[in-house]
Design a binder for these strands. Structure first.
Length: 440
RNA sequence: GUGGUCGUAGCUCAGCUGGUAGAGCACCGGGUUGUGGUCCCGGGGGUCGCGGGUUCAAGUCCCGUCGAUCACCCCA
């Protein structure tokens, strides 16, 4: 059999990378729980009509089909892999509304699938770490201010470059456009979103091609260029002289989000009135998160408020949430060797073997160490000690244990060796587990 | 899904206008008859992504395909 080749868009990490990924996922999870989000996992598939109902246009959904499915068997025909965690969550809320307490806050860390053309930082299978808060009938606006704080906490605790959460509000954009007499909001947003890439002149041109007047296009551009780290953006908007109730409502909400962030975590947030992205179910605040130095890879964490995602008859569950694109984050940092683990295995101690006859003594020492929670493995063979030490060195294992009448343990980084008892010895806390650190 | 660029040992790459594969690092062994990381000596490893075509002859040209990457689309 010839050597297998990778599958485009389905990244697989090496153990040392997976070690880092697990460490990151663990820290993110603990931060989510620190804020009281409850754990949840939903199935990988959803009925296709559910998936297509909101948001996703289509072709990007992977459909599930049995290999031997009968032509007439339609039982699985309408299932697709979820492309995010918000849509499945909305479904879950509706399904279990009677068993949940509202407001309901949950986190969900799972893989999602999208049938897109892969490139660096965009994959067909990737992890999302998602938090959402939903309430019944109405959702207080303060939750929209809380979300970025959680993300800021989760990400700033990691050994990664600084992040900035960019916020905007759909109501500001829609209200402003409406005040200008524009009704093709979606199309306008799409062009405005290209501002960074193609520049203001071309955006205006594209807008005019869409039927906007010179004046309208100019105003749209002026709004998009507003950006501020505090609530001063609101005055700048008002100076443009457009008035609309929805615009005012949006501004008020956005000011609140920004003010909260400025008070709690200065420097985390910036109001940027050009950002409009996210799936089309967003109705209020929207978030995007950029990694300093890696802006060209786009957002590593996005989300927003949605009022109509979870609705069934009279029941309405408005929500707000955000997702961290863990795989994207890791891939772009791995790509530049910006994340490293102090070792490639969990092992803290390698117990040397004097001779195969004496292996039981090594096995016993290892067992004693493990009883104290120290990850330990026994050397693969009774090779020369130099080779056994090298086995540890190659993997970054910090300690080698030499069993004997009185055991001794060597820190192979310093070369220091001391007599020790396997039943009581313990490494410094920081050596117990691999340490993940940033090098950027 | 559309279009462009790229694809030689584990890694970084060399290989002129086609003539039957090389370096550095890494790895393995020995010097060092049981405590590594230096140094010296030696060694293994590539169907040149894969498949087909042109040619006496292809890593080198052509087509396809897979993979990586970029742009569009869209988005974590």
């Amino acid at each position: 059999m010839s050597k297998p080749t990778p599958l485009s868009g389905f990244p697989e990490w090496l153990p040392q990378q997976r070690l880092i990924e697990q460490e990151i996922l663990g820290r993110v999870r603990r931060t989510f729980e620190l804020y009281g989000f409850a754990p949840l996992e939903t199935r990988a598939v959803e009925p296709l009509d559910q998936l297509l109902r909101k948001g996703e246009t289509s072709k990007e959904v992977y459909v599930l089909r049995r290999l031997q499915a009968d032509e007439n068997d339609t039982s699985d025909a309408a299932l697709g892999l979820h492309f995010d965690l918000t849509v499945p969550f909305a479904r879950f809320v509706l399904e279990n509304a009677g068993k949940l307490q509202f407001p309901f806050r949950r986190y969900q860390i799972q893989k999602v699938w999208r049938g897109e053309r892969p490139q660096e930082g965009r994959y067909r299978e990737f992890y999302q770490a998602d938090i959402d808060i939903v309430d019944r009938d109405t959702l207080p606006a303060h939750y929209e201010a809380e979300i970025p704080l959680v993300i800021g906490d989760a990400l700033s605790g990691l050994p990664i470059p600084r992040v900035t959460v960019q916020v905007n509000n759909r109501k500001v954009l829609e209200g402003f456009y409406r005040g200008l007499g524009i009704d093709s909001t979606e199309d306008v947003l799409r062009q405005v979103d290209k501002l960074d890439k193609i520049g203001p002149a071309k955006v205006v041109e594209l807008l005019k091609n869409q039927g906007l007047s010179e004046a309208q296009a100019t105003q749209v551009l002026k709004l998009a260029e507003i950006k501020a780290a505090d609530s001063s953006f609101a005055d700048q908007v008002k100076q443009l002289g457009v008035s609309d109730p929805l615009l005012d409502e949006g501004l008020e909400e956005l000011v609140r989000v920004v003010d909260t962030a400025v008070a709690e975590k200065p420097g985390l947030i910036v109001a940027d009135l050009r950002i409009a992205r996210g799936l089309d179910y967003y109705t209020g605040t929207v978030y995007e998160t950029l990694l300093e130095g890696y802006e060209r890879f786009g957002s590593i964490s996005s989300g927003g408020r949605y009022d109509n995602l979870a609705t069934a008859g009279k029941d309405v569950f408005p929500g707000v949430g955000i997702s961290i694109g863990v795989t994207r984050l890791l891939a772009i940092l791995f790509g530049r060797d910006a994340l490293t683990a102090s070792r490639s295995v969990p092992t803290c101690v390698l117990v040397a073997v004097n001779s195969e006859e004496e292996r039981p003594r090594s096995v016993a020492a290892a067992a004693a160490l493990r009883r104290n929670g120290i990850p330990t493995e026994v050397a693969p063979s009774a090779a020369k000690f130099g080779k056994q030490i090298r086995y540890a060195e190659r993997r970054g294992i910090p300690y080698v244990w030499f069993p004997g009448e009185s055991g001794s343990v060597k820190d192979i980084r310093s070369g220091e060796q001391v007599d020790a008892d396997a039943a009581t010895w313990a490494p410094p806390q920081e050596d117990l587990r691999p340490i993940v650190s940033g090098t950027a």
